[in-house]
């Protein structure tokens, strides 16, 4: 099996293709739904029901799903690279555990209501995620030698602690609250205006810029710490930067839609199978394809049993899992088991 190296042309072709694919999905997805939509009516008459559905219900939701999926996939690529572990996901180091703990605490205390358009639930989730990120980072800094491995150890432990505390919160909640918590933990993309999209956008742009800028260095880092250091990379600085960048993406996304699983694990995997491991192309493509993947899953989740919506996280696994297995069996046998 052979692998082409990155050239300007390859970069432009792949990114262009991914861009076209995601644009087409983004344009088509809002037209799909339980209610038939007439695009001409929606566009010509701003006060029509069609326009209302398109602009208030579907378009924000599709854009939201695209941002969330993109952020999770990019974050997954980065966590897998810095931990040098293809089984890592955005949720491995406890960011989502902390975010979820913050959210279920907010529900327990009855803070899920919003005042003047500001909802406390995402803020509580962000606070939880930030706390965990800082604890994991300072724990690994106390080690003699700061490395991705120490991040992994403290992150996994914190993740378990958060999971235990979430169960404890459940235990002390009544049935209604416990049900709300469970639904939140399943993840949901139901937004009804552009407000959430606009709030999330700056977080994602900052995180993305931070990660993309160092994608070349991520290549040598993903090959090993010594490998990177002997090629002139300041490993500790780079790991710290990537850790906080990827945590920012994951934490902000989880705050608004709960921990939607599988996107951040499977999309990086699939893209690595198709494109190789060069992070310069992997990161931007993961953003586009992660978003596209989640938009497709969400479109199915909200239509297949309409008007009932199935939590999108169920579909990311049901669709992504078999597709991944199929790719694995057809394309990469020799990479996992040979050599």
């Amino acid at each position: 099996m052979t692998q082409a190296h990155l050239t300007r042309r390859r970069f432009a072709t792949i990114l262009g293709g991914a861009f076209l694919l995601s644009i087409s999905v983004l344009l088509l997805a809002p037209l799909v739904g339980p209610i038939e939509l007439s695009l001409p009516t929606a566009l010509s008459d701003g006060s029509s029901l069609d326009a209302e559905i398109l602009l208030r219900a579907r378009l924000p939701r599709v854009l939201f799903a695209a941002l969330v999926g993109g952020a999770l996939a990019v974050s997954g690529v980065v966590f897998q690279a810095i931990l040098r572990n293809p089984l890592a996901s955005p949720f491995t180091l406890g960011v989502s555990g902390g975010g979820s703990l913050g959210a279920v605490l907010a529900i327990l205390l009855g803070w899920e209501v919003s005042f003047h358009g500001i909802s406390f639930l995402p803020l509580a989730s962000l606070a939880g995620a930030t706390t965990v990120v800082l604890i994991v980072y300072s724990l690994s800094k106390t080690q003699r030698h700061f490395s991705p491995l120490t991040l992994l150890l403290s992150g996994v432990v914190l993740n378990y602690i958060c999971a235990a505390l979430i169960l404890l919160v459940h235990y002390f909640s009544n049935f209604t609250k416990s049900f709300m918590m469970m639904r939140w933990m399943m993840g949901a993309l139901d937004v009804y205006d552009f407000g959430v999209v606009m709030t999330l956008l700056p977080f994602i742009l900052i995180g993305l810029a931070l990660l993309l800028r160092y994608s070349r260095y991520l290549n040598v880092l993903s090959a090993g710490e010594d490998w990177a250091a002997s090629r002139g990379v300041q490993v500790e600085r780079l790991v710290t930067l990537q850790y906080f960048g990827a945590s920012l993406l994951t934490g902000s996304v989880v705050a608004y839609c709960g921990p939607i699983g599988f996107v951040g694990l499977i999309v990086p995997h699939i893209l690595r199978l198709l494109l190789g491991a060069d992070h310069r192309i992997l990161l931007p493509t993961a953003f586009l394809m992660g978003g596209t993947f989640l938009v497709i899953c969400d479109t199915i989740a909200r239509t297949v049993l309409a008007p009932t919506e199935i939590p999108v996280g169920i579909f990311t696994s049901i669709l992504g899992g078999p597709f991944f297995l199929w790719l694995l069996l057809h394309r990469r046998k020799e990479l996992f088991f040979g050599g």
Binding site: Q3, H5, N85, N219, A223, G276, A277, R332, L335
Partner: peptide
């Protein structure tokens, strides 16, 4: 761990 070519 990751699929880099020898040239990469």
């Amino acid at each position: 761990t990751f699929p880099y070519s020898a040239r990469e």
